[in-house]
């Protein structure tokens, strides 16, 4: 990597400087301007060739400040265009920020920002194609998580630009699944880190019984458990992100692990904040909502844990 992980982390932290839920349109321009959409694309295709670890850094930053927008879906489209080859024109447009989106679940459900996109990626058994939106119908599906705008897309019999078929499509589908898991896991770990830091801050400031809440050992121990779970999940994340041989199941299980940690921390954050944590004015709920949504996007824990269990049975 020409840019170290630490440098990239620094740049990402500066761009999204800690204010939660920054303006969506502004964030999107920033993401495109910083070249983040071209991070993982090989240099000979006009990208930066920084690989999955860089994708991890970016999505951690986006998760930490709960940035809105279709960045994960866009990366999937970019990966597909890059893998297909010969799509330099579309690839260039996507890397420059023209919204092209993809499902974060199965079929054409849970497609972020489909109404603003020029194209939607369709992954089917044996064929992967890019559909121009003109031919599609979509229904907005409002989620509890207000930082995401999801749509169900109806492709009818629209035919798009075919990117891969047969074995190539199968291989690409599994790459896309792994990438989606990496991005979602990174989003989880960024959010978990922010929610934990916010909770520790609160415990140190809030006073009850003439002392800061942070003095109560029962609460300190819960914080220590959250920290331990987070550090271990982060270590697993970086080990997997730099493992080019990791398959879709290994990555999916890693994502399920990260999502579990995010959920734990988001739940504990509310409990340890008390009443204020249960209000709309306080950001606790934003983390909980994104955590529970992340947990089901890209395959839920039940799915990946069972798959990982089967894998371990034959190891």
């Amino acid at each position: 990597m020409s840019m170290t992980r630490a440098e990239l982390q620094d740049a990402a932290a500066k761009a999204f400087d800690g204010d939660l839920t920054p303006d969506a349109a502004h964030s999107w321009n920033l993401i495109a301007d910083m070249g983040w959409l071209m991070m993982a694309v090989p240099e000979d295709q006009g990208g930066l060739g920084l690989g999955r670890a860089a994708v991890g850094v970016i999505h951690q930053a986006l998760g930490r400040t709960l940035v809105a927008g279709p960045a994960i879906a866009q990366m999937l489209v970019i990966e597909a265009l890059s893998a297909a080859g010969g799509q330099d024109e579309l690839l260039g447009r996507a890397m420059a920020g023209e919204v092209m989106t993809a499902s974060l679940a199965d079929g054409l459900s849970a497609v972020p920002d489909a109404d603003r996109a020029s194209h939607v990626l369709q992954v089917e058994a044996g064929i992967i194609s890019l559909l121009p939106v003109g031919d599609l119908a979509f229904t907005a599906r409002t989620t509890w998580d207000g930082t995401r705008r999801l749509f169900d897309v109806d492709a009818g019999d629209a035919a798009g630009i075919v990117l891969a078929t047969g074995d190539a499509a199968t291989a690409l589908a599994s790459r896309l699944s792994a990438l989606r898991s990496v991005a979602l896991a990174a989003d989880c770990l960024g959010g978990a880190d922010a929610a934990l830091a916010m909770t520790i801050d609160y415990l140190e400031t809030r006073r009850q019984f003439d002392r800061p809440l942070a003095l109560f050992q029962a609460l300190k121990h819960r914080v220590a458990d959250m920290k331990t779970a987070l550090v271990a999940a982060e270590a697993l994340f970086w080990a997997r992100a730099s493992d080019t041989a990791a398959d879709a199941v290994t990555m999916g299980a890693m994502k399920a692990h990260a999502a579990g940690v995010y959920r734990l921390i988001a739940e504990e954050a509310i409990q340890l904040h008390g009443g204020i944590g249960l209000t709309m004015e306080h950001p606790c709920h934003l983390f909980l909502k994104r955590a529970t949504l992340n947990a089901v996007l890209g395959g839920d824990g039940d799915h990946w844990e069972e798959a990982r269990g089967r894998q371990a049975m034959t190891a």
């Binding site: 271990a232 299980a253 692990h257 844990e305 069972e306 269990g309 089967r310």
Partner: peptide, 24 residues
């Protein structure tokens, strides 16, 4: 038994995470 496989898979990820954190 999907329930058992899930618990096993979840454990496997935890073991992986423990190895990764010891490594780090």
């Amino acid at each position: 038994d999907a329930g058992v496989l899930r618990d096993f898979g979840r454990l496997a990820s935890k073991v992986d995470a423990t190895c990764a954190v010891a490594d780090q």
